[in-house]
Design a protein around this nucleic acid. Sequence first.
DNA 1: TGGCGTCAAGGTTGC
DNA 2: GCAACCTTGACGCCA
Length: 297
Amino acid sequence: MLGYAAMNRTLRERDPPRRCNRDMRKATWESEGLDRAAELAERNLRDLRAILEWNRDHGIRFYRCSSTLIPWNSAFDIEELPNYERIRSLARDCGAFVRANGVRLTFHPDHWCKLASESADTVARSVETVAHHGRWLDLMGLPRSPRYAINVHIGAHYGDKAATAERFCDVVADLPPRARARLTVENDDTDSLWSVPELVESVADRVGIPVTFDYHHHAFADRGLTYREAFELARPTWGDVRPIAHYSEPARLHGDADARPQAHAHHVARVPPWLRRAADVMVESGGKERSLFRLRS
DNA sequence: TGGCGTCAAGGTTGC
DNA sequence: GCAACCTTGACGCCA
């Protein structure tokens, strides 16, 4: 399967727009609080259902939902929402749709999520982040499996990779099951950070979570491995679950000579067939769902 | 209503 | 030691 992340450009341009990433700024959160969060969450969940239906109608069964599905959820318990029962019902409905249609739904908390941080406060906030993603998937009634992944990066080295890996594993082992059982870890796009072999050896083999292979990121920390060798290293960490891989192409190869090497191109030319055969591939490009259509044509 | 400056959070690197 | 940068759409102020 091929998938895309977050925004659906086609539905975003409709009137009214359909999207599941409505958010608010701090000042709004402080002035309007739970009532506003409740309203945005409800609209986001309704539109998530619409996006999932649109995906199915267009042959797309792999989708990464925005982490602002329930905005500011790290600041409150979801049961505190005044419309909690409606939220629960909408989430259950999305989950039922996902299961009935063989959809793979995942999340990818952003780079503020630092499970291996040296700061206890940062770790606590990061644990809360993956925990509430797990809560959403539970509300949807989806199995606690990396089929419905909550994918994170370690994203730092703190000057000591061995100690960082140790902290990461300790924190992961203590996560609530709703997050722990769905957690996956992805290779970074920086030479000093976490490559596929490092994640497999230092994390996956120790604490038993799958490694998400990001094809584009691998170029920045290849450790002498070809793309295929790196993927084959990550593959067994998924056990019985079909692996997820991320695929994008450098903007520089698509005419943007000034782009930094890590920048993603707006579309991708071709997903390697060996990768498509062995994994569900999340295409990360600005073109979103339209990039998938171009790959088919 | 449209344009546009700014946005909760962490960490690395360059100066 | 401080500032820029990551990344990117969307929020929300202001004209």
